[in-house]
């Protein structure tokens, strides 16, 4: 069996004049957690639907474990679990009954079915709620039931569309732990599409950044960060006493610093080429400053995301960047 489980080649989907997915070529390796990142409307959901054969691609092909997703969707659906983003359950049935129905549709019967259900209930931690009607479930509980639901068929590949949407931080931690566990212990291949960077950063081995239907970057998070550092340099935040204009001028003169700006909280933010941190520290000490704060920021996904969006000329990203800036300044 090939190392790549999910393979997309030149996958394209057009709705009339709009191209939702544009010539996407991507492969996901066995046992990998892959994050498909992008703003809303970037074509992530369309991509996942094409992977399940629920939408026919305009051009190109997608294969999961060697099975063509468009031609034999039924075979694909036997070993691919799909967690849709607005997925729901029959509200008048209990969680257990919902799971039982899914199990039956996947050809499970009798004791094997009940045992699978019990195992999964325990695994996702909904034992106390499972015999209540799903209409009373909270969003977080529904999501956990959803994961139990897609695991009913014991899939090799999991595709999750915005699994972290609308879940509180505690639920999020449990969810990410569960996803990680599924990948590491059960060896499942997982494709997650999301616009929420932070969770993705914690659980994904690789990410692909997806803007306007095109994959503009793909790789491990550290790879992407390094790539960006080389192109755009590092970002630092520096605080020292005495601060203010004097500090700004001192830093502006350091070799390798391309841009220096005074932030509202009194710190100076720098954009540099290479890694001039030694030079910066030495200069500051030489000039009699006392260094109080030195923080290199740019390796986190937010920045990567924003950078790539910027490069793709995505106005949406500007908003996101604007929104994320104050958080980092704290």
């Amino acid at each position: 069996m090939a190392d790549n489980v999910i393979e997309m080649e030149g996958l394209t989907k057009r709705y009339g004049a709009i191209t939702a997915v544009d010539n996407l070529t991507l492969s996901v390796r066995r046992g990998e957690v892959f994050g498909l990142l992008g703003p809303n409307g970037a074509g992530k959901t369309t991509t996942t639907l094409m992977l399940l054969g629920l939408t026919d691609p305009t051009a190109g092909s997608a294969r999961i474990a060697g099975v063509d997703c468009t031609r034999s969707p039924l075979r694909v659906k036997r070993f691919v679990g799909y967690l849709a983003d607005n997925m729901g359950f029959y509200p008048e049935m209990t969680g257990r009954e919902n799971l039982r129905m899914t199990g039956r549709m996947n050809g499970l019967h009798g004791e094997a079915l009940e045992r699978r259900i019990d195992g999964l209930i325990e695994r996702v931690g909904i034992a106390e709620a499972v015999d209540r009607r799903t209409g009373t479930y909270s969003k977080g509980m529904k999501q956990r039931l959803g994961i139990a639901d897609i695991l009913m068929k014991d899939p090799d590949v999991l595709i999750m569309d915005e699994p972290t949407n609308g879940i509180d931080p505690e639920g999020m931690r449990e969810l990410t732990a569960l996803i990680r566990q599924l990948a590491e212990e059960d060896g499942k291949t997982i494709l997650i599409s999301s616009h929420q960077l932070h969770q993705i950063q914690q659980i994904c081995d690789r990410v692909g950044i997806f803007v306007s239907g095109r994959l503009i970057a793909c790789g491990g998070i550290s790879d992407l960060a390094r790539q960006l550092e080389q192109e755009n340099g590092l970002r630092y935040e520096i605080g020292a006493t005495p601060g203010g204009e004097a500090l700004l001028q001192a830093l502006g003169g350091v070799e390798g610093v391309e841009e220096a700006a005074l932030q509202e909280d009194g710190l100076v933010s720098l954009r540099t080429r290479g890694d001039p941190s030694d030079a910066i520290v030495r200069t500051l000490l030489d000039r009699g400053f006392t260094l109080t704060h030195l923080h290199q920021s740019s390796t986190d996904l937010d920045e990567i995301y924003a950078k790539y969006f910027e490069r793709a000329g995505e106005s949406d990203a500007q908003d996101k960047r604007g929104a994320s800036r104050p958080r980092r300044a704290r």
Partner: peptide
């Protein structure tokens, strides 16, 4: 509206 159609069509059924 319930979101159950999504779930049904991702099962291995016609």
């Amino acid at each position: 509206a319930q979101g159950t159609l999504n779930r049904l069509v991702s099962q291995p059924i016609y």
